[in-house]
Design a protein around this nucleic acid. Structure first.
Lengths: 211, 211
DNA sequence: GTCTATAGATTGATAGAC
DNA sequence: GTCTATCAATCTATAGAC
């Protein structure tokens, strides 16, 4: 075959292991082993470990971010047409919800969303060098859209609050099921939709808080 | 000398490098090099790399958490005595503020606070095994205190929201100066106090949001 | 495109002299 | 307690047969 599915199996395995253990704590051998492929094949297809990470990001993040961009533009456009301010909750939902919907597609996208969450909160330079260029235009669009929704809020304050929101969101995407700090509680919202709605409500309230 | 300061220099270097590059991306050689100590000396004093991480956590986190515990207990006690509900902002300030105050003491504590932030958001199992047992009792106290402040809120919802707050806080402690996703903005709140107040306002608004 | 074999560097940890 | 020297394991990446 001209395009072997080995390449895809390696991408899937890398996605899974980078998400679970992080970039530096995942070896090429672990990836090719899980992919049932050869170590040399991975370097043949991708060139290096870092280039493999880049490929993992690009495969899914480009279409996902396009979807989010369109939703944001639509909300801002509709509000402009109606002569009203865009709604903070609508904007944050446009940014957050596609990620969670994406998450529920299959095991691959599920792992990918964890990787996104990890990349949003980690400081690791390798991951950030791959991730930030792919997310920055969308982040700027979100920022300017929120400026329209909250015209009274100083931009510097908005930016600071948006960083808080990214922290809350990143941690949630990274480990949505598990409760990292356990507390005895009957039941926590298990399904993604409930967590997403709770997150949207939380960050919207924080963004809209009085100054 | 019976207790060489080599041990302390190694602790300081490990604290700094673990905070900046993470556990797995920091080598024992990098630590001993920065500490101007010998590789074998580090293993002599601490036994292993993981035990060194444990020692880094314990040195500062135990007194810091004791201070936070006392502040939380004081707020709950005062409210109880006055026959009113404790205030969410006061509770979150008691949890967050000592960390930032601690941060401004010297370069060592500054690096340590970054490490705490990193540990709050990362999934890495090694760091978590060392960190979680040290923070869990305090986290449970914060949770029960917030339950008193927000008696109408279902515990499961409160727990979910508290996880969001931990994400926002962890990311802030991890990288308070730098703006990971750059946006052109005149000036963002540079000093720790302003960021801390913004964070307290953000998470309190999120916790108090209607259900 | 896929494999074996291996180069070349780096890792955590330890033995043993002083 | 501190050092040199080194072990054994692991890592990324590549050369070369098929």
């Amino acid at each position: 075959m001209s395009q072997s599915d080995t390449k895809i199996r390696i991408l899937d395995a890398a996605e899974h292991l980078f998400a679970r253990h992080g970039f530096h704590n995942t070896s090429m051998r672990a990836i090719t082993s899980e992919a049932e492929a050869n170590l040399a094949a991975a370097n043949y297809h991708f060139g290096s470990k870092e280039a493999l990470l880049q490929a993992v990001f690009e495969r899914r993040l480009v279409p996902l971010n396009q979807q989010r961009t369109e939703r944001l533009r639509h909300i801002v456009g509709q509000a402009e047409q109606a002569g009203i301010l865009p709604d903070v909750r609508d904007l944050m939902r446009a940014f957050i919800e596609p990620t969670l919907t994406f998450r529920n597609q299959d095991h691959g996208t599920r792992a990918f969303v964890s990787l996104i969450g990890r990349s949003m909160v980690e400081m690791d330079s390798t991951s950030r060098d791959c991730f930030i260029p792919l997310i920055e235009p969308l982040f700027k669009l979100l920022f300017t859209s929120l400026q329209r929704a909250l015209p009274h809020l100083p931009p510097a304050i908005l930016l600071t609050r948006l960083q808080f929101a990214m922290g809350a969101m990143g941690r949630t995407l990274c480990a949505p099921d598990q409760t990292p700090l356990q507390v005895d509680v009957e039941s926590s919202p298990s399904n993604s939709e409930a967590v997403a709605e709770a997150l949207i409500g939380f960050v919207s309230a924080g963004l809209e808080a009085p100054c």
